[in-house]
Amino acid sequence: MLILTIRRVKNERLKKIFLKIHYEVNKLFKYLNDRLQNGHYTANESRELIAWIDQVEELQSNLKNSNLCFEIDDYYKSLFISCNGFLTRSGGSRIPSDFKKIELNYINPIFKLKTTDSTELKNKRISGVKSIGEGSYAKVFKYKDPDYNKYFVLNRAKTNLDEKEKERFKREFDEMKKLNSPYIVEVYQFDEDKYEYKMEYIDYTIGKFIKENNNKLTLDERKKIMWKILAAFKYIHSKSLLHRDISLSNILVKCYEDTRVIKIADFGLVKIPDSNLTGLNSEIRGSLNDISDLQRCGFDKYTMLHETYALCRLISFILTGSTKIDSIRNTQLKTFVEKGVNPQLDQRFKNVSEIKNALKFL
């Protein structure tokens, strides 16, 4: 039956791979459903599910720029993300108490080739474009695509950019296109003529989400958001990149029925090794940045110790709902934040792993 659901996949080897993954993942998800009441997912099955999810991510990454690039069903994609949040490779995995029973899909495909012709997409007229803000180098618009019946974002370069800024804008797209993580906003197509690109639409900025839900969010929910943000930046840093523009508007929250996914956006100021795009007098952005030290040393001297400073301020906001450090009442949290924003750079957290270790008191 599954063979019929992927008949549009003409590559026989890829078709067999999709079938195999779909079968094995469903088998492991079915067993996970059986273990919900027990609350413990056994060790062998935990390792197997981790391995299959890793294989899906690796396959998607390897085929990303080929004619065999594919998309994962949104529901299963959200399941992979949720499971990655609690699965461990040894001793089995504790199933979160709020984890819902999985609705298994045996009929429809969970992998679909991206068959949209890029020329047709490029020339297609879009309507209902609405301005929703602006980033470092672009004006940002929202529109609904009639073919997909869903919203997308259009990032259009500002008309007053100089050549260096235009290069940064194009580099933002290029770097985001290279990254392959559920924690990074997906970008789809760069129009060289209009100097704009399309990307996925996300429901909330972290600032808006916390503001609207501050009185309803439990500590566990706040912690889940925090851990996902740290996982996102651990991935970014593993690519030898520094974001440099951490703010309440550049961390996004995508809401599904059964989970929330953190997405990092606006890589216009990303620091790449050996790049010369940041000059001594480059404007400092990022509302959570250590402005005083960066003004002293120059934005081109931005390091991991500045990135962890901004991350600690962000974590404080998520846990308290306020950007004011002085108003923190929890003694352990205040000690954590004070270390993270210490004026002496060598006293700060050196990386995301140190931040995670220091948060074990929660």
Score class of each variant (00 low, 15 high):
10 K>G: 15
17 I>W: 13
20 K>R: 13
22 H>Y: 03
22 H>N: 09
24 E>G: 02
26 N>Y: 06
39 G>P: 11
49 L>I: 07
51 A>S: 11
55 Q>N: 10
55 Q>S: 10
66 S>K: 07
76 Y>F: 12
80 F>L: 07
95 I>A: 02
103 E>V: 06
104 L>S: 04
107 I>T: 13
108 N>S: 14
108 N>K: 14
110 I>P: 05
112 K>C: 04
112 K>R: 12
117 D>S: 09
120 E>W: 09
120 E>Y: 13
122 K>Q: 11
125 R>P: 03
126 I>T: 11
126 I>S: 08
128 G>V: 12
132 I>T: 08
132 I>V: 15
134 E>K: 14
146 P>S: 13
146 P>K: 03
146 P>H: 04
147 D>M: 02
163 E>N: 14
164 K>W: 00
167 E>C: 06
178 K>V: 01
189 Q>W: 08
193 D>P: 04
203 D>P: 07
205 T>R: 03
207 G>I: 05
208 K>D: 14
210 I>H: 06
215 N>T: 11
219 L>W: 02
223 K>A: 09
225 I>H: 03
225 I>L: 13
225 I>R: 07
235 Y>R: 01
237 H>P: 01
243 H>C: 07
248 L>S: 11
251 I>V: 15
253 V>R: 06
259 T>I: 08
262 I>A: 06
265 A>Q: 05
266 D>C: 01
271 K>V: 01
272 I>T: 14
274 D>R: 11
284 I>F: 03
287 S>T: 14
292 S>W: 05
294 L>Q: 13
296 R>L: 15
300 D>T: 07
302 Y>R: 09
315 I>R: 04
328 I>S: 12
336 F>R: 04
337 V>R: 08
338 E>T: 12
338 E>N: 14
346 D>P: 06
351 N>E: 02
352 V>R: 01
353 S>F: 05
354 E>A: 09
361 F>D: 02
